[in-house]
């Protein structure tokens, strides 16, 4: 494979790729009004300002840390979702994969594995249980990628199938009951503090840093953008598109597992119905963060902003005692608004 080919969009930072006129002048709102580049941050600032005026609890430290803990899970999942969406794919199974990985981690930690025919009991340490959960997520993600590339199944369908399969496996593994009482060491992941910052926030910071490095500084990062920009051209340029896609879905599965382990640890319980509709919050974060659903354009940091907006919005609506039914309506409208603004800026083409 050529080492120096960075075709299509892969050779420029995503934010710099915009349609231009014949004389090289960009037509987008962003170029005319540079402030539009920071629309997510501006939206977040205005949201926080409004909530701090409307609720005296919003700016309290305990509430802000609580929001950050909650957002951490969505950030992990959304980072994986961003990589997938950048390749013009989608993953609807992250919520179910999250639940299964959390349940497997908790189940192995609590009960181990019994093999009566060999009179053998295999116990798992916290490290072992976490690795098993992570491997499960990676394997399910890889299977998604394999099904999509090997059988040319649309990502929507393949991951929808995995959504059901993973949820069913979670029910089978747990018997429909929560698995609780996982021990203080494991609880530290979801509830502990390190250097004055909650551990889940540290985990999400590490995940984001690695993902930014992957997308900005590595060859595979450029390939991800290239495939989303023009898959056929990428293939003709010598990129092993199928391999890159499988890697991306594997990473997304692993990150869903990270989210599942964090949720399980935070609750000290693996719930069989954990993660329901998490995929929607994740897609919302990606879209609000400015990543184009048609692939090739977007950034990890944009998704982080999107996840924070979704998290703050969720928290604010609860603090303001808005009915859960209206909360869904508001969230839906915010997503729609984000897409419309994105389109008007020319990023979503």
């Amino acid at each position: 494979m050529p080492q120096d080919i960075h075709p299509i969009a892969g050779d420029k930072p995503a934010a710099d790729r915009r349609p231009a006129t014949a004389d090289g002048q960009s037509l987008t709102l962003q170029s005319r009004f540079p402030i539009a580049r920071f629309q997510s941050l501006i939206a977040l600032f205005l949201l926080c300002l409004a909530l701090s005026i409307l609720s005296d609890k919003f700016l309290s430290f305990s509430n802000l840390w609580n929001v950050m803990r909650q957002i951490s899970v969505n950030i992990c999942i959304s980072v994986g979702m961003t990589l997938i969406v950048l390749t013009a794919g989608i993953d609807l199974s992250v919520g179910s994969v999250l639940a299964l990985c959390g349940a497997i981690t908790a189940g192995l930690l609590k009960n181990g594995i019994e093999i009566p025919s060999q009179n053998l009991y295999i116990g798992f340490t916290v490290l072992g249980a976490i690795l098993a959960g992570g491997l499960t997520g990676s394997a399910l993600g890889a299977f998604n990628g394999w099904a999509i590339t090997r059988f040319n199944v649309p990502p929507f369908v393949a991951t929808l199938a995995m959504l059901t399969v993973a949820r069913g496996l979670t029910m089978l593994w747990t018997g429909g009951f929560p698995i609780s009482g996982l021990g203080d060491t494991f609880l530290f992941i979801g509830t502990g503090w390190f250097l004055g910052i909650p551990v889940p926030v540290w985990i999400s910071i590490i995940v984001v840093a690695l993902a930014v490095f992957l997308t900005e500084k590595t060859r595979i990062g450029r390939y991800i953008y290239a495939i989303g920009g023009n898959e056929s051209a990428s293939r003709l340029s010598g990129i092993n598109v199928n391999k890159v896609k499988i890697i991306v879905y594997t990473i997304a599965g692993a990150l869903a597992a990270v989210g599942g382990i964090m949720v399980t640890s935070r609750l000290d319980s693996a719930q069989p119905n954990a993660g329901i509709s998490y995929e929607l919050d994740s897609i919302a974060a990606v879209v609000i963060g400015g990543t184009s659903l048609s692939g090739g354009r977007g950034s990890i940091l944009g998704t982080v902003q999107g996840a924070i907006i979704i998290g703050v919005l969720n928290n604010g609506l609860v603090l303001l005692n808005v009915s859960p039914f209206w909360q869904q309506v508001v969230k839906g409208l915010v997503i729609l608004l984000a897409v419309i603004i994105d389109k008007s800026n020319g990023k979503g083409e």
Binding site: E114, P116, Q118, N119, L120, Y121, I122, G123, F124, G128
Partner: peptide
């Protein structure tokens, strides 16, 4: 560092 083994009847 991940797993340990015991006889099932002992457990």
């Amino acid at each position: 560092n991940s797993v340990y083994f015991k006889k099932l009847d002992e457990v």
